[in-house]
Computed example of a mutant assay.
Amino acid sequence: MTDDAYLFLVDALPGPGWQGTPVSLVGELECLETPAVRAWLDAHETDATSAALRIAPPEQTGMIPEEAERLPVPLDGEELERVRRAGATDPVALVEEELLTYRDTEEGRDALLRKALAAGVPVHRIVELSGVDPTALPSTPRP
């Protein structure tokens, strides 16, 4: 795993398997205006609005197809959160939003933590979004 997110290009749309998150779903990213990214896009005769331009957060870079053209890009914390949310499945995205809201209240804590685990939200994301101590998480998700 790397600390950088990666921009990459996919050839066939839609194709089987993981295709990453279209940059157009994420919104504006500062890195898209840097000379390095603009030169990379120009070299591949594409731009930031292309349906073939995708982005992967650091924890998903191992899933980028080996043959894909790729470029590491730094993202700030807010941009990285938008990339992660844009690429999350609907159930995971909904639970992650609840975890962010949870920071302001303790009501329903255990039920929400179980729900997040059952939805497949990774433990590190639950801790990051909710601020809960990892040892406070239930050991097994319950419905």
Rank of each mutant, 00 (worst) to 15 (best):
D42I: 04
V37P: 13
A39V: 05
V73C: 06
P58K: 03
E59F: 09
A43P: 00
R70I: 00
E45N: 00
L75W: 01
E45Q: 07
G62F: 04
A56E: 09
A48E: 14
A56G: 08
L53N: 04
E66Q: 08
W40Q: 09
V37T: 01
E67A: 14
L53M: 11
W40G: 07
D42R: 14
H44R: 10
M63H: 11
Q60L: 13
A51W: 14
A43N: 13
T49G: 15
I55D: 08
V73N: 00
V73H: 01
I55R: 08
P74E: 12
T49M: 13
E67L: 13
P35R: 14
Q60W: 09
A36T: 13
I64H: 02
E59K: 07
R54G: 09
R38G: 08
D47V: 04
E45S: 05
T61C: 01
D42K: 15
R70E: 10
A36M: 12
P65H: 10
L41K: 03
D42G: 13
L75P: 04
L41W: 04
T61V: 10
A39S: 14
V73W: 04
V73G: 01
E59L: 06
E59S: 09
P35E: 15
L75I: 02
P35Q: 12
D47A: 03
L41G: 04
V73F: 04
A56Y: 00
E59V: 03
T61Q: 02
G62C: 00
E67K: 12
G77C: 08
D76P: 10
P72F: 06
P65I: 07
P74L: 12
E69F: 08
E59Y: 08
E66F: 11
L53P: 07
M63N: 09
T49D: 14
A43D: 14
R54D: 01
T61S: 06
P72K: 03
A48N: 12
A39W: 05
A39M: 12
A51L: 15
L53E: 07
L75T: 08
E66A: 07
G62Q: 04
P72I: 03
E59I: 01
E45R: 04
V37E: 13
D42A: 15
A52I: 09
L53S: 02
M63T: 09
E45G: 06
A51Q: 15
L53F: 10
E69I: 14
E67S: 13
E69A: 15
G62N: 06
H44N: 11
V73D: 04
D47P: 05
P72W: 05
A52F: 01
I64A: 01
E69Q: 14
S50Q: 02
D47E: 06
G77V: 11
P72H: 07
P57F: 03
A43S: 15
P35K: 11
P65A: 08
A68W: 06
L71D: 02
P35M: 07
Q60Y: 08
P57Y: 08
R38C: 07
D47T: 06
L41P: 04
V37D: 12
L75K: 02
A43H: 11
L71F: 14
E69T: 15
L75F: 01
I64F: 00
G62P: 01
S50D: 05
P72R: 06
Q60H: 09
I64G: 05
D76H: 13
D47F: 01
E69K: 14
A51I: 14
L53T: 09
R70P: 06
P35G: 10
A56T: 00
R54F: 07
E69Y: 10
A56N: 03
D47C: 05
